[in-house]
Simulated assay, not measured.
Amino acid sequence: MTDAQGALKKTPLFALHNELGARMVPFAGFEMPVQYPLGVKKEHIHTREKAGLFDVSHMGQVKLFGANAAKALEDLVPVDIIDLPVGKQRYALFTNEQGGVMDDLMVTNYGDYIYVVVNAACKEQDIAHLRANLSADVELEVMDDAALVALQGPEAAAVMARFAPETTDMVFMDARAVKVDGVECLVSRSGYTGEDGFEISIPSADAERICRLLLNEPEVEAIGLGARDSLRLEAGLCLYGHDIDTTTTPLEASLIWAISKVRRADGERAGGFPGADVILGQIANKDWTRKRVGLVAEGRAPIREGAELFDADDNKIGVVTSGTFGPTAEKPVAMGYVATEFSALETQVFASVRGKKLPMTVVKMPLVEQRYYRG
Rank of each mutant, 00 (worst) to 15 (best):
V62T: 11
V62G: 02
V62H: 03
K63A: 10
K63G: 00
L64F: 15
F65T: 08
F65P: 08
G66D: 07
A67S: 15
N68D: 06
N68Y: 02
N68M: 05
N68Q: 12
N68W: 01
A69I: 08
A69C: 13
A70I: 11
A70N: 12
K71D: 14
A72S: 15
A72Q: 14
A72N: 15
A72G: 15
A72W: 10
L73C: 00
L73H: 02
L73K: 00
E74S: 03
L76S: 08
L76N: 09
V77F: 10
P78Q: 09
P78D: 04
V79S: 14
V79D: 09
D80P: 12
I81S: 05
L84C: 13
L84Y: 13
L84P: 12
P85Y: 03
P85T: 04
P85H: 00
P85K: 02
P85I: 09
P85V: 05
P85E: 10
V86F: 00
G87A: 04
K88M: 12
K88Y: 11
Q89K: 13
Q89G: 13
Y91G: 08
Y91W: 15
A92R: 09
A92G: 14
L93T: 02
L93G: 02
F94R: 03
F94V: 11
F94E: 08
F94T: 13
T95E: 07
T95N: 13
T95R: 02
N96T: 05
E97W: 06
Q98F: 09
G99Y: 13
G99C: 11
G100L: 12
M102F: 04
M102Y: 03
M102S: 08
D104A: 06
D104K: 01
L105W: 07
M106G: 02
M106F: 12
M106P: 04
M106A: 10
V107D: 08
V107H: 09
T108D: 07
N109T: 09
N109W: 04
Y110F: 14
Y110R: 14
Y110T: 14
G111V: 12
G111C: 12
G111I: 11
G111L: 10
Y113G: 11
I114Y: 03
Y115F: 15
V116Q: 03
V117D: 06
V117N: 15
V117Y: 00
V118P: 04
N119E: 12
N119L: 07
A120D: 08
A120V: 11
A120C: 10
A121T: 12
A121D: 11
A121F: 13
C122H: 01
K123Y: 05
K123S: 07
E124D: 02
E124N: 01
E124C: 00
E124F: 00
D126A: 09
I127A: 04
I127V: 06
I127T: 03
A128H: 12
A128W: 09
A128Q: 15
H129C: 09
L130I: 05
L130S: 03
R131H: 06
R131M: 05
A132R: 10
A132C: 02
A132K: 12
N133K: 00
L134S: 11
S135M: 02
A136V: 01
A136C: 00
D137Q: 03
D137A: 05
V138W: 01
V138S: 01
E139L: 07
E139H: 05
E139D: 08
E139C: 01
L140S: 01
L140V: 01
L140M: 05
L140G: 01
E141L: 11
E141N: 06
V142Y: 08
M143F: 06
D144M: 07
D144Y: 08
D144W: 06
